[in-house]
Amino acid sequence: MKTKLLIFILLSISAVFSQTPTAVDIVDRVTNVMSPENTYSKGTQTIITSSGKERVFEFESWSAGKGESSLTRYTKPAAIRGQAFLMLNNADDIWSYFPRTKRVRKLASHAKKQKMQGSDFTYEDMGGGDVFQTKFTPTLLGEETRDGDLVWQVELIGIPDLEPPYPKIILWVRQSDYFPVTLDYFNESGYNTKSLVLSDIEMIENYPTAMTMVMTDNKERSSTTMRNLEITYAWEPPKGFFSERNLKK
């Protein structure tokens, strides 16, 4: 009897530990992993067009509230030096600052779909927060091995009434740390328009961090590589940091 009970307990424990999490659980964990409370980073953005032409930008970026507020300021090249973008409410509200005219302008939400400095990232792609949790319905499609890592494949279907950034996204999430290594973006016709691959993943202050992110536009055959040159999650935003005043600095 005791032996049967022990076997039952061991089997139960084993079942609990090997139980595949639900799609909702995975997306919740992904959101947590991808959204440190605050972030400061310096990076480069390299655009390579379909004809092989290259443009390199450098920027500084700050975010707080798990990506709810962010500010990005370009430092190179000279033509756009000082241009800055303030995004609040998970990029629902965007303000731009153009140093040549000293003007701050509020952009309407349609501007979120514009390419950032002609790159393959839109403003919306740069907005953090809980968009995967709130604007999509997740389904776990399965698991596979990618580059030696066991990953889950999760499908996110946008909830139309909530104006999701894309109708459908497929995530490949590393099982070891819930870090998404690939995101495929689809349009209404089911065409895989863009793909984001996150690599060079390092542990920075207890958060797995992709030091390289490559967004490929599958239609235009162009790509944009974002590289983190410097990043910390220990940065604390001073009061009033995410404001028009600071945007103009």
Partner: peptide
Amino acid sequence: PSYEQTGVKALRLEIPLGDRAL
């Protein structure tokens, strides 16, 4: 219309009143 404009001799005081008021 978006060409830079010439400077104005002035004194400007800007007082932020919260994050979204100036």
